[in-house]
Design a protein around this nucleic acid. Structure first.
Lengths: 236, 236
DNA sequence: AGTCACCTCGAACAGTGTGCGAGTAGTCTC
DNA sequence: GAGACTACTCGCACACTGTTCGAGGTGACT
């Protein structure tokens, strides 16, 4: 994986032809299905071929290699990001951020790919374009448009990736959240012993009823508004 | 990879013993060296064993599996994050954010791991504790301490991961930045044709001399101050 | 001297991505 | 209708992966 990511799929000429039998779109669709159903580790060329009733190596006619395939499925994730229509830039940005978050939640396997795989596909670009529009209309000028946009995307990714990664590895164990906490808490408590701030924090979690899942959600909101406020201040 | 991440290394009892010959620390150190030198794909149990003058399967006495090994090397990355001493919370937070950024830059392979692998190691926890201290002293109260901290970490990760991933995949191609731009620009231009905001942006890049590498750096600074301003406003 | 825990490791298994070359089937040209 | 050419499929093979198992060795303690 990832030896020479440039050339990306998007920088190559697409193979034109008759498109009988297998097609690239069909392959990508099947790959997303497989990924959604069984996760990133389960995606192999052989399995994917089998799912399509084809030999594994047939895929290589339509797709240069597995890395390319992954770029393609990632762009499908960007396709599911609901794009902002709102006029107000803050509202538009929120829609985008939550849309992105939602998209990754829907395709948990994308968490370990999303910052790492080049996002030059049509859907990724369209999403960028839309978000950028919001910042332009907001009144950001010059390179600040880029900066503001990057900030929002960065925050959204950085918040979402660990959250989704955690959730899907939790799911993989089969344990419930409370079971996990019961198992991990004592160890965490011991390790927090000589880390005063962490200790204090864990203590207060124990007092209040504390659901780390909703906490994460609220944390996302908190950070997003903080960031938007900070960006807004820049406008005046 | 990543079938049942809980149990994490940190939730298991460490195997105590004589520690003759191979040791866990030794293995982890060698793994980091290998990763730094050749990247994530190059880390295999056999190669690592060979580098230590040992059989591949000998490693399995000291480490349950590769996932555990990866948790261990990740904690080494957290070990290199320089921790803030400053009293001022803004300054402390900046030190942390740039420290984290720097750590990932020094170990580019960590970019595709850092949000995804559970960070429960001693070094990760110490770093958390320190950062948390800064927010506590700043005057954040209750759960807001967590939220503020999460926001900063999220932003930092989300900004750093794609940046480092891009740089190291650029390095893997052997091409220079300008060579790459020359190759990608025409395609990007074509794709931007019906995306007005992107088009406008690319045009203005072409006018000003535009180095995407320094731009990324400035973008990080821009977003970080915006976020800190937003968080600061919350304090009053 | 014997026992036992610690530690190493070769063989083997089931899987991976992918290059190659042979083979098939549909379409286009004469 | 014959031949040529392109589009596409796919079995085989290669070099590699993580990991299990069980047999062996080696040093310390009784």
């Amino acid at each position: 994986m990832s030896a020479k990511p440039f050339s990306s799929v998007w920088t190559r000429e697409r193979r034109g032809g008759r498109e009988q039998g297998l097609s690239r779109d069909q392959i990508v669709r099947a790959a997303v299905e497989l990924l959604d159903a069984e996760g990133l580790d389960a995606l192999s060329m052989r399995k994917l071929g089998a799912r399509l009733g084809a030999g594994a190596t047939s895929l290589y006619w339509h797709v240069a290699n597995k890395d390319e395939l992954i770029e393609l499925v990632m762009d499908e994730v960007y396709a599911t990001v609901v794009l902002p229509e709102a006029a107000d830039w803050r509202e538009a940005t929120r829609v985008f951020a939550y849309g992105m978050r939602h998209a990754v939640f829907e395709h948990p396997w994308s968490a370990s790919l999303i910052g790492v795989v080049p996002a030059l596909g049509p859907n990724a670009l369209t999403a960028s374009d839309r978000l950028m529009g919001a910042f332009v209309r907001a009144g950001f000028e010059g390179i600040d448009v880029d900066y503001a946009m990057t900030a929002v995307v960065s925050y959204t990714l950085g918040a979402t990736i660990p959250e989704v990664a955690f959730l899907s590895s939790l799911k993989a164990t089969g344990k419930s959240m409370t079971e996990l906490q019961a198992a991990v808490d004592p160890i965490l408590m011991k390790m927090a012993a000589d880390r005063p701030n962490l200790l204090e924090r864990y203590r207060s979690y124990a007092n209040e009823g504390f659901d780390p899942l909703v906490a994460r959600r609220l944390a996302f909101e908190f950070g997003l508004t903080a960031l938007l406020n900070g960006l807004g201040a820049r406008l005046r």
